[in-house]
Design a binder for these strands. Structure first.
Length: 865
RNA sequence: GCGGGUAUGGCGGAACUGGUAGACGCGCCAGACUCAAAAUCUGGUUCCUUCUGGGAGUGGGGGUUCGAUUCCCUCUACCCGCACCA
């Protein structure tokens, strides 16, 4: 038996149990089970080629939950798959000449092999890869159903164009004016694109957030802000030409401040506004200005330093309340086309951008709101002569029928008036925009559409699905290989039979991840995306785990998809993820030489206070701990760690060092400490080998009974800690328990039986955390069941009750001593015992206490005079 | 600019609903075993101190309370998200 070895042989043991679990199909989800269901899911990985520490942390956290819930009697679904479409595959093709598909499938094989030694309780029979036609064909059908339902549409629009990746990006993928992967400055281009109508569900997605009480507040807040609901009004401003004639179409403007209408001094439209395009046809100055606006960057620096600029169109707008009051109409660089109506009215006194603009073009500034407790004349003079807008709350002034109303009242009154006049309407506006899903890339799901000159875009008939990617493509130049394929595009129009052209764009990869959790419920179903009954049985996911970087993108798209698919009859569910947990990053110290070169952790030697590069003894500067990344060379390879210390040690360190939601700093001493604890447990178990199996006696020595009580308390608290994701605390409790068991005096009455019971209990408690060692100890002590299939241990509530407690005694809030008291001691007994303490008498110095506070079973506080 | 979060020993972190601050671990110190080292075991480890005792202490300042890491106000530092959203 392996336990005879001096040190724990993780190599043999871990492989042995992984094989046993696989042979006995321990983690296969039960098909027909009376047990309650529990769906544990970690965000499925992109097959980049190798596992990194972030993966190990993510899947370890999920595995603890899955194993624990299984032991608690749930029928657990814990599947794994691959988010297999994406740009790195094409980049690899470009750099190395391999086919993206071959590269991806090879990576999947490598990573699957790397996953297995971690000992995760996954049901591999449900494995899926999103790049398989068996997967994405359903997605094509889904898209066509969305089109039919009016939830997907094609439109020409200004889009974010990544000049490095030669593709369009969603708003969610533009970070700080740059492409989220390439980091290149994003340009604005006008293209025909497919959009999913996520805005249709804006309100529902917003109110649904309130029901997600097992999500982190941070994520809920981020989604709320992203959806960005605001209340305001749409207002029509009749337009007058430069020569004084009224135009047929008024200008529609959106505002959240209709209460400031009497402070208006101009209107402004976006450079992309249709009116701007129309006017530019006869105004080269304006045409130049519009072109200049399209070129401008949208990065932080560009936006912050960009001067407010405008171009006077010569048009005038009539004030909605006073038709004789005309204000100039500008095209302005700071007005966004895709928010509201692409047009605004400017009220300089109460909007900082407007006052900047007004000062530059010498437009009037008129204060129409003042704080209730200030003199309106003094206040408005001050505002009107300075360059700072007042955006606070107050009371309307200089505003005719609105005068004297508070801002909120004035908003309502102004909207009421506008609606009465028929030139405005109270509306709700969202920041959220429709999701553009077209990507000009090869390695994605083809959009199943055919373009016909006479019929327009026509859906690929169901019988012709899936539209698969052609294998014979070239990556010798940038751009989309599908668009330059010699034959793939050419196809007859399904509607009229004339020559048509295939859509060459593919879906954004977030399309695949928006429904994969439903596919896992019936992963091999051929005729449909998923079985509705199975999906309704398993969904929502009870516990979803992933990085906070998907707080908006993936989590919002998935919530939208469930709503859209419900409306298309696929399912009947709004929220796909009942519980969400966002784990912290895995970090490591960073090292640089004096000339700034990054140094790998393995190439650094610590010499007291100093650090040196091993290869040449060059001094190394130790930097702060940062997220592991290849560019900073501060990564640690999980494979090497598992080879050296085993999966259980890696899992233990991941779980014990920091709470899971916080960043974890990887250290060599930390993993060594974990390894030491494994060996400690192992020795603890070895000591129990020669204790015969037998019941714990009813009566044993007090010291033995204390340990027995500790075992029961640990069972109670560890389970509770795991439920609450406090894995670091759970490990601390287990360590405390092993310390108690290890120091138990075996000569005492009943000690042996309690020792053995303790070791078996520890094996059960560490099972979700260190499953291989747990099985090994369990089996070594003669247990014939497999721990992976065994129920969670139970505790005796009677043994949680102590018959004594420690009473803390304070004088004026300062601790002066502690007394051991019987649990049933009453208040006066506690008070008498506390006052009898010499330390208390010394503090009182003969004076009677002014007051004594007794908190049962906790504390006595004596207030001295 | 707007919104949110965090702050506890040398380090990671505990402390349930206001009730013994520093559990558990890392590191360090001393001792045992050893020719020696590793491993292991035992003890110590918030700081100051005139040390059988006393004092201070949870980022700074203030408040509520018999009692505050915990509640309130305020300031500071750092981190995260959004960003010309009218």
């Amino acid at each position: 038996m392996a336990l005879q070895e001096e040190r724990y042989n993780f190599r043999e043991t871990e492989a042995k149990w992984q094989n046993t679990w696989a042979e006995q199909a321990c983690f296969k989800t039960e098909a027909n089970s009376a047990k309650p269901k529990y769906y544990v899911l970690e965000m499925f990985p992109y097959p980049s080629g190798r596992l990194h520490m972030g993966h190990v942390r993510n899947y370890t956290l999920g595995d603890v939950v899955a194993r624990y819930k299984k032991a608690k009697g749930f029928n657990v679904l814990h599947p794994m798959g691959w988010d297999a479409f994406g740009l790195p595959a094409e980049n690899a093709a470009l750099e190395r000449g391999v086919h993206p598909g071959a590269w991806t499938r090879q990576n999947i094989d490598v990573m699957r092999d790397q996953f297995k030694p971690l000992g995760l309780s996954l049901d591999w029979s449900r494995e899926i890869a999103s790049c398989d036609p068996e997967y994405y064909k359903h997605e094509q059908k889904m898209f066509l159903d969305l089109v039919k339902a009016g939830l997907a549409y094609r439109k020409e629009s200004w889009v974010n164009w990544d000049p490095v990746e030669h593709t369009v990006l969603a708003n969610e993928q533009v970070i700080d004016g740059k492409g989220w992967r390439s980091g290149a400055d994003v340009e604005q281009r006008k293209l025909n694109q497919w959009f999913l109508k996520i805005t249709h569900y804006a309100d529902d997605l917003l109110t649904g957030i309130d029901t997600l009480d097992r999500w982190p507040d941070k994520v809920r807040l981020m989604q709320r802000n992203w959806i960005g609901r605001s209340e305001g009004a749409r207002i029509f401003w009749p337009l007058v030409d430069a020569n004084g004639t009224d135009r047929a179409e008024p200008l529609e403007v959106y505002t959240t401040r209709p209460d400031t209408l009497f402070g208006a001094s101009f209107c402004a439209i976006s450079a992309h506004h249709p009116l701007a395009a129309e006017l530019a046809q006869n105004d080269t100055g304006l045409a130049d200005f519009v072109a200049e606006c399209s070129r401008a960057g949208t990065s932080t620096a560009a936006v912050e330093t960009a001067e407010k600029k405008g171009y006077d169109t010569g048009l005038k707008a009539r004030h909605p309340f006073k038709p004789d009051w005309l204000v100039p109409v500008y095209v302005a660089n700071f007005v966004l086309m895709d928010y509201g109506t692409g047009a605004i009215f400017g009220c300089p006194a109460h909007d900082q951008r407007d006052i900047d603009f007004a000062r530059k073009y010498d437009l009037p500034v008129r204060c129409v709101v003042a704080p209730a407790d200030e003199d309106p004349d003094v206040f408005s003079k001050n505002i009107e002569s300075n360059n700072e807008a007042f955006t606070g709350d107050g009371v309307a002034i200089n505003s005719e029928f609105l005068n004297g109303l508070r801002v909120d009242e004035a908003k309502r009154a102004a909207i009421e008036k506008l609606e009465g006049l028929g030139n405005g309407k109270g509306t709700v506006q969202f920041r959220l925009r429709d999701w553009g899903v077209s990507r000009q890339r090869y390695w994605g799901c083809p959009i199943p559409m055919i373009h016909c000159e006479s019929c327009g875009p026509v859906a690929v008939p169901d019988t012709d699905l899936p539209v698969t990617l052609p294998e014979d493509v070239t990556f010798d130049k940038p751009g989309n290989p599908l668009a330059r394929h010699p034959t793939w595009r050419n196809v007859k129009c399904p509607s009229c039979g004339k020559d048509g052209l295939r859509e060459t764009d593919t879906f954004d990869t977030f399309f695949e991840s928006s429904w994969y959790f439903a596919r896992f419920c019936s992963p091999h179903l051929d005729e449909r995306a998923f079985d509705k009954d199975e999906a309704m049985k398993w969904l929502p996911v009870d516990q979803y785990i992933g990085g906070v970087e998907h707080a908006i993108l993936h989590l919002l798209y998935s919530r939208f998809f469930m709503r859209a698919l419900s409306d298309c009859g696929y399912i009947d569910l709004k929220e796909p993820f009942d519980g969400m947990f966002t784990q912290g990053m895995v970090c490591h110290e960073t090292y640089r030489t004096n000339d700034g070169a990054w140094v790998e952790p393995g190439d650094v030697r610590r010499d007291g206070e100093n650090a040196l590069r091993v290869s040449d003894n060059a001094p190394v500067n130790v930097g702060r701990s940062e997220k592991m990344s290849k560019s900073k060379k501060n990564t640690v390879d999980p494979h090497r760690i598992i080879e050296t210390y085993g999966a259980d040690a890696a899992r233990l360190f991941m779980l014990s060092d920091s709470p899971p939601e916080r960043d974890l700093e990887w250290t060599e001493s930390g993993i060594e400490g974990a390894w030491r604890f494994l060996n400690r447990l192992w020795r603890l178990a070895t000591e129990a080998l020669n204790i015969p199996d037998g019941p714990v006696p009813d009566k044993s020595d007090t010291a033995v009974l204390t340990v027995e009580r500790q075992i029961h308390r640990a069972i109670a608290t560890v389970g509770d800690d795991i439920e609450k994701f406090r894995f670091n605390s759970a490990v601390a409790r287990i360590r405390e328990l092993t310390n108690a068991i290890a120091t138990l005096d075996r000569k005492l009455d009943g000690a042996d039986a309690v020792y053995r019971f303790g070791v078996l209990s520890v094996a059960q408690l560490i099972n979700p955390l260190m499953p291989h060692l747990a099985e090994e100890i369990w089996q070594s002590l003669g247990q014939t069941t497999i721990l992976a299939k065994a129920p969670w241990p139970t505790f005796n509530p009677a043994l949680l009750e102590e018959n004594t407690f420690t009473l803390a005694v304070q004088v004026n809030g300062k601790l002066r001593g502690t007394i051991t008291m019987a649990t049933d001691a009453d208040k006066s007994a506690c008070e008498i015992a506390a006052l009898a303490l010499p330390a208390v008498q010394k503090q009182l110095a003969g004076q009677a206490p002014r007051k004594v506070i007794v908190v049962p079973k906790k504390i006595v506080n004596i207030v001295a005079a």
